[in-house]
Design a binder for these strands. Sequence first.
DNA 1: CCAGGGTATCGACGGCAATCGATATGGCTC
DNA 2: GAGCCATATCGATTGCCGTCGATACCCTGG
Lengths: 121, 121
Amino acid sequence: MTATSMSVNIVGVQPIATIAASCPPLLQEPLAAAEAENLAAALKAIAEPARLRLLSLIQAQPSHEACVCHLTEPLGLSQPTVSHHLKVLLQAGLVEREQRGNWAYFSVCKEPLAALREVLA
Amino acid sequence: MTATSMSVNIVGVQPIATIAASCPPLLQEPLAAAEAENLAAALKAIAEPARLRLLSLIQAQPSHEACVCHLTEPLGLSQPTVSHHLKVLLQAGLVEREQRGNWAYFSVCKEPLAALREVLA
DNA sequence: CCAGGGTATCGACGGCAATCGATATGGCTC
DNA sequence: GAGCCATATCGATTGCCGTCGATACCCTGG
């Protein structure tokens, strides 16, 4: 794999917790241009129907975790598409990934969501 | 076709407060497809650097309001672009518009932001 | 009225992102 | 090692959105 093809899609993706921690509450003081871009990138990670449903579906499991094969059918999306969205959520720090055998189990991280809530204050 | 697909297209301009009120907290129960689309549309309204800065800049004014001509220069964007973003925020219910003479004064609505925060719980 | 300034809309362009099929990668079982 | 299953990546396509210049709209003052 070449570094170029990898880095293209990763541009602008930082863990949400980091971004939110570096931003003042939205209505407290004017956002700088760089802060606004980071915060917007963080919000874009969840501003997508499939990713919202992924977070919701994973958390709704009895064990609060799910593997890809359990998520494609309820979402009505192909396996590559689900994998793509999970990668975006993973890079944003919104989910954790744990490999167990052939299966990759994803679980929701609640802290970044709480951080985002605070920035919207 | 018909009113159904029409109303779907209008979903994107639905006030955030309405959308958030019709959604359960994200991690409480699985989001239906329609709920996820509505919520994503609401989040997209603020998942944009220029619009975040607009909210922040307007609120930062001493009178908590600003007209377009005061916003183009600090944002470094053209007047049509600023007007476009303000329209998006207006349709999302995130700002109010009051015409006074030649000038249109915009102010931030805090309730929709609070509603969004709750849905992220 | 008419002129001028503030704001909104239009049309076009460019870039990004969501989606899929095909395929590669990784890990288990026999 | 061979075959298989779950997942990740690749390449291509498509639709959406942010941006701008040009222009239309609206209000006020003369």
